[in-house]
Structures are given as structure tokens and as C-alpha cells.
Amino acid sequence: MIVELDRVTVAYRTVTVLEEVSLKVFRGSFLAVIGPNGAGKTTLLKVILGLVRPVEGTVRVFGRDPRHLGAERRAIGYVPQTAAVDRHFPLRVADVVMMGRYGRIGLVRRPSAADREAARRAMERTGVTHLANSPLGRLSGGQRQRVLLARALACEPELLILDEPAAGVDVPATESLYELLRDLHKDGLTTLLVSHDVGVVAAFVDGVVCLNRRLVAHGRPEEVLGSEELAQMYGCAAVFFHHGRAPHMVVARDECWS
């Protein structure tokens, strides 16, 4: 087991963001956390990353408190929302990817040949090698997302965590991004992502967790997506159609927005 949350509750001042969430991520799994905006998805990731401390409950990542992970930290690759990254920062793609190595290189030291090799492999894997010298500010949303993924892979992680990887990315780029994630997972990378986009995710992952402050449902995609719990979570009747490779969710408009 790589991640284990036991009855985790998180509150910012008086507002409860997560309530008694228990979750296990097993080695080799590909898990999506879905839920509406404001469901606490990003907070859940921050708890796992050790950026937010729960008021109650315990968190274990690689068997340890994520806020005191020490060297195990290097085994986590994190891809933040593209919007959270400053596009106007004067950096070239190769520099951004190299940052994935900084945690491993250690304070004061300079990148070695091995670090450059790892960064090169990460760029090759995500298909951004040809962009190595491009300034960050000139990339499309999809390219930027792949660069951030390359940065996460550069640290050679055992656990990959992504926050809304499809946000700000067009549909074809989203599909190819998920295909890439599926290939990485096949190579043994444990992957955890959050998304509010229920449909596309389901075609690629092997487990879905529905979160709306509390854990609403948990299971294989086909079990969760047709469930009563999911319909309740979105507060309206939701129906999934298997259209092409990706199931699409259709919600009855008059019930939701009347």
C-alpha cells in the first residue's frame, strides 16, 4: 500500500473541507478522485502531499507521515493544475523539467550528468523533447501540461499525483494525455488524479473515488458511474452513455438548473 488515509478530517478555520475520509491507494493502481467543484479534491491531494495537516485522522504515505517523509519525498511526482504555474516566468522547458530533479540533487549542489539524463528521458517520454529550448510562455495548454508531467517524471517517482490534468487542455490533447498516463501506469507507475470531468477519466482508470466533502462511492469505474451515490452527489439524475471509448455523463437539465 502506498497511500493510506484513515478518517481524515480537514477544516480551514470553521469550514470543514474534508470529513472522515478513508482511502487506500495500492501499489500499481490507477485511481481517479472525482467530484464537483468545491468537493475538497485538491485538499485531499494536499493532505497526501503533506502540504495540509488534517485536524483529525491519520495519513500514511509510504508508511510515514507525509509531512515528515524525508528521502521518500523523491518518490512522489506531482503535477499541479496548469493554472497554478506562472506562465510569464522566464524559463525554458528544459529548465522546468530539470526542477523535477532539484529535490534529489540536494541543497547547494549542481545537476550532474545523471540528472540531465533523467530530465532528457522524461521529456522524451512525454514527447516534449523538441520543445526543450522553448520559453514556457509560448506553449499551448496541452504542451504546458506535458512539460509539467515531464517535470514530475524527472524525479523518477513511484507515485504520480495529478490535479485536474485536463483543465485548460483541449479535447484531443486531453485524450492523448490520458493515453500517456495509461501507458505510464502499465509500466508500473501508481497514479492518483483528481478531476471534475467524470466521463473521460473513467475510460482510462481502474478505480474511481467519488468525493463530496465525504467519500461518497468507491469502486471500479463501471460500478461507480451508474450508481445512485454519484447521482446524489451531483444533486440530480446522471446517466452515462458509453459513446466511443469514453463514457459521457448526461444530466437532466431541468432537474439540475431549474
Binding site: L49, L51, R73, I76, V96, M99, Y102
Partner: peptide, 11 residues
């Protein structure tokens, strides 16, 4: 550039 990511990396 990215303080949150730097924190995740253990800086």
C-alpha cells in the same frame, strides 16, 4: 517559480 512544488520536493 513554483513554491508549492518546491515544498513537495522537500525544499
Amino acid at each position: 517559480f513554483d513554491p508549492e512544488m518546491a515544498r513537495v520536493a522537500g525544499l
